[in-house]
Design a protein around this nucleic acid. Structure first.
Length: 808
RNA sequence: GCGGAUGUGGCGGAAUUGGCAGACGCGCCGGACUUAGAAUCCGGUUCUUCGGAGUGCAGGUUCAAGUCCUGUCAUCCGCACCA
């Protein structure tokens, strides 16, 4: 006879039962809890055990809240627009909708293996016209509010995806999706004015219960800086150049200026003798790739022949051009203080420009071998001399403003969002170009603008969408004047659908609004959002921006979508190619299939092991054999409940103590989301319980029931089965989370370690409430002859330790 | 270059936030059961020259340090000419 519990039968039985009678009742008047997973892209290759981690964690929290009497919204859906389905279409001619449908079917089957309490009636799919109707509707609102606009500018272009990229998708000059080096291409594109929200996106971060790391990444990306704009007149002309600086305190030390090669004033100020050289440099910079401009740190530059005038002291400063100055940040022009800026120092050394020190450590000038970038005492700075540079930094912007040659300003690194894509498998941008009326949004009652069928999905080299070749779709009538007009052929980026999907879940069948006011009011904002760190800037920033916009137009009643964020770590495994640790992926050959694990150990064991593997916020290495421990534990607890299910005896004091402590520990560890210690807690307390029961000749019912309920969020099937085996007819999830009685957790006697000079020499058992003198006396007795010398000090930490300090 | 995280047995990792380092589990060793294996159960498992030593390394504060401070090394992650 096998002692293994029959997980296959049990899990099948309860899954069928829960499908019929969901344990999470809807439309109640209970308090709400919205627990959200980042929805997956339904790729053809399906799930691996790494995907389970976040989904199990969020399901544990959801079920835990359920047992606390909440009505829980725990939905799942598919972020299904995107390149893999489209690339597959290019190769095979299969319509992406078909591929997507198949992928969703497959991944949904795998997701169901997790046995999470997802409400499948609320499933969303970003590629469903009923869904993207509202993605388009939001765009139309943005257009109407002047937030969506068209602009021609040099953009990140991925030569491999044949598509433009947003700044957020092209960090380090590399395509976020395919890894190809990004080039610049001058294109006319649709932009979203996210920079208008920069201040709010930054400010509202501070109230969010998010990992500090993510908040920092977002605030760095927004990149707010305080400084001043200062006007430099150009010698012998009536023109001026405005520079932006965060170091107005160093203005007296500005010895030259540098313009970005794209700066519009360059042709106007370049002197005749420098013209050729300047034009050559500007041309070279324009053809230099984005990547080399970022990575070639060697300074290059050219002198324009013109001079600016330092507004403070009238000094003449030569105006140079260099590609280390960015055209689209600040004013595209800088004043250079080589004494106090590394880059300016390097430039000055290379081109032999003067260096004037204006800040010094001790008020004395010194020979600088590198830029002095710390704070210090002002020197060579007229009226500022002797002042602390930090103070000067604060005072100067105001001073500059008073004198009328500049103003205090703020700058952001955040750029507007390049929103259009030249690909097929995305939401069509719902606009019409009319010769008479200009750009006209498609009327809301005509949404969605559905994706037409095309013959070739192939993207073009020219930056034109594959949709442009379908004349019967492109040619339309203007909704405004009824005349001939052409549709916008660009599509939206993948982020469009995911920027608001969390709103749709609460009312996903609504054809009249993106979600009803009542449903939004009831469910939003999200209480806990679980997902990977890779979306720290992209998705999470976009979703916050969308929410703020929708708040501004009155479509939602809150400004921040996600109150609490949890980033689970990745599951890694050694690659079979080079033996190094990598995040699980098909291409590294290190994928472990959850299907296989479920087959061998069951869903409950895999769920518990996913949590046991390590701290949930850190990356962990997958180890196949580790799951054995969890599986053995479940067998052990199964056997324990089975053997005692008909018990009628009362709890001993010890068992009562273990039960109360167990409830306390499991609860507080679960609240802190330290799930790995919850699992070890289960093992630890169960071991104690089994040992105590052996000694007592059995265990009481209440303790067995408590164990079932505690386990229910983690291993729902076995918990439900054991609950029923105790004679209950209702579900374990209809119960309340157990409470604990602190007074019953206390032990009568405690083991106290006895130290001499901080080294443990003995232990002694004393009454828990014994006073210091009693314990010290007992400790000395236990030490006996080991205690020598003069006692200097006696320390007692109640219930923990005695330390006797003795001098020899 | 700047910023952040991490560093504890053969392995994954605990440690009530300054109070007996190594919980819990994997693996391994020994034993029981078995014709045998699997499974299960019981015991052991940081190192040690048995004095002690020990949380990447070197200092410091303290009666007491994995935990606090200073310096340093390594690994990983984010940003990267943002003036």
């Amino acid at each position: 006879m096998s002692t293994r519990y029959n997980f296959k039968e049990i899990e099948k039985k309860w899954r069928a039962e829960w499908e019929k009678n969901p344990v999470n009742p809807t439309n109640t008047d209970k308090p709400k809890y919205y627990c959200l997973d980042m929805f997956p892209y339904p790729s053809g290759s399906g799930l691996h055990v790494g995907h389970w981690r976040g989904y199990v964690l969020s399901d544990v929290v959801s079920r835990y809240k359920l047992l606390h009497g909440y009505e829980v919204l725990h939905p799942m859906g598919w972020d299904a627009f995107g390149l893999p389905a489209e690339n597959y279409a290019i190769k095979t001619g299969t319509h992406p909708a078909e591929t997507t449908k198949k992928s969703i079917e497959n991944i949904k089957r795998q997701v169901k293996e997790i046995s999470a309490i997802y409400d499948w009636d609320r499933e969303v799919n970003t590629t469903d016209p009923k869904y993207y109707k509202w993605t388009q509707w939001i765009f139309v609102q943005m257009f109407k509010h002047g937030l969506a606009y068209e602009k021609e500018m040099p953009l990140n272009w991925c030569p491999s995806c044949k598509c433009v990229l947003a700044n957020e998708e092209a960090t380090n000059g590399v395509c976020d999706r395919c890894g190809a080096q990004v080039t610049k291409k001058n294109l006319r594109q649709w932009m979203l004015g996210i920079t208008k929200y920069a201040e709010r996106l930054l400010n509202d971060l501070k109230d969010l219960d998010w990992p500090e790391k993510v908040k920092k990444m977002q605030s760095d990306w927004i990149g707010k800086s305080y400084g001043a704009e200062v006007d430099f007149k150009i010698k012998d002309t009536d023109k001026k150049i405005t520079v932006y600086t965060t170091r107005p305190d160093t203005l007296y030390g500005a010895t030259f200026m540098v313009l970005a090669p794209e700066h519009a004033i360059i042709p106007e100020i370049t002197t005749a003798d420098k013209k050729d050289e300047v034009e050559k440099y500007v041309y070279a910079a324009s053809t230099k790739s984005n990547v080399s401009r970022m990575t070639d740190k060697e300074k290059t530059g050219v002198f324009t022949g013109a001079y600016g005038i330092n507004p403070l002291n009238g000094a003449l400063v030569p105006i140079w051009i260099s590609d280390y100055v960015l055209a689209d940040y600040g004013t595209g022009a800088i004043m250079c203080v080589p004494a106090h800026d590394d880059r300016d120092f390097e430039f000055a050394k290379k081109f032999d420009l003067p260096i004037i020190q204006v800040i010094s450590k001790d008020g004395r000038e010194e020979e600088l071998t590198q830029a002095y970038t710390e704070a210090g005492i002002m020197i060579n700075s007229g009226e500022l001399n002797g002042m602390n540079s930090e103070e000067a930094k604060v005072k100067m912007p105001e001073y500059v403003e008073e004198k009328g040659f500049g103003k205090k300003t703020v700058n952001y690194k955040l750029r507007d969002w390049v929103f259009s894509r030249q690909r097929y498998w995305g939401e069509p941008i719902p606009l019409v170009h009319c010769e008479k009326c200009g750009i006209v949004p498609v009327p809301e009652d005509q949404l969605p603008v559905e994706l037409p069928n095309v013959e070739s999905y192939q993207p073009t080299e020219t930056g034109e969408s594959p949709l442009a070749s379908i004349d019967e779709w492109v040619n339309t009538t203007c909704p405004c004047c009824g005349g001939p007009a052409k549709r916008e052929t660009n599509t939206m980026p993948q982020w469009a659908g995911s920027s608001w999907y969390f709103l749709r879940y609460c009312d996903n069948h609504n054809d009249n609004e993106l979600a009803s006011k009542e449903a939004l009011e009831k469910w939003l904002p999200v209480d806990l959002y679980v997902g990977g760190i890779e979306h720290a800037v992209l998705h999470l920033l976009y979703a916050r921006f969308y929410t703020k916009f929708l708040y501004d137009i009155g479509a939602v009643g809150f400004e921040e979508p996600f109150k609490r964020l949890f980033n689970q770590g990745m599951i890694c495994k050694k690659s079979e190619y080079d033996g190094k640790l990598y995040k699980m992926s098909k291409s590294m050959g290190n994928v472990v299939s959850p299907d296989e694990m479920v087959e061998r150990y069951g869903c409950d064991s895999l769920r518990m092991y996913e949590l046991f593997i390590g701290p949930p916020e850190l990356d962990s290495e997958w180890d196949d054999s580790g799951i054995d421990g969890v599986f053995r534990y479940l067998n052990k607890i199964w056997k324990f409940v089975d053997e005692n299910k008909d018990s009628t005896i009362a709890a001993t004091k010890e068992i009562e103590q273990i039960r109360n402590k167990m409830v306390y520990e499991i609860t507080s560890r679960l609240e802190a989301l330290t799930m790995n210690t919850v699992v070890s807690g289960f093992m630890e307390f169960s071991n104690k319980l089994i040992a105590a029961a052996k000694e007592a000749g059995g265990v009481d019912r209440q303790t067995l029931e408590t164990v079932c309920i505690l386990l229910a969020p983690f291993t729902p099937h076995i918990a439900e089965e054991m609950w029923h085996s105790l004679g209950h007819g209702d579900s374990v999830f209809a119960q309340s989370w157990p409470s604990y009685d602190e007074s019953k957790m206390k032990e009568d006697s405690v083991e106290v370690a006895v130290q001499i000079n901080g080294k443990v020499k003995a232990t002694v058992s004393v009454a828990a409430d014994a006073d210091k003198d009693t314990v010290i006396a007992a400790a000395k007795e236990a030490l006996g002859a080991k205690l020598t010398g003069n006692i200097v000090k006696e320390i007692y930490v109640p219930g923990r330790i005695v330390n006797i300090v003795a001098k020899q």
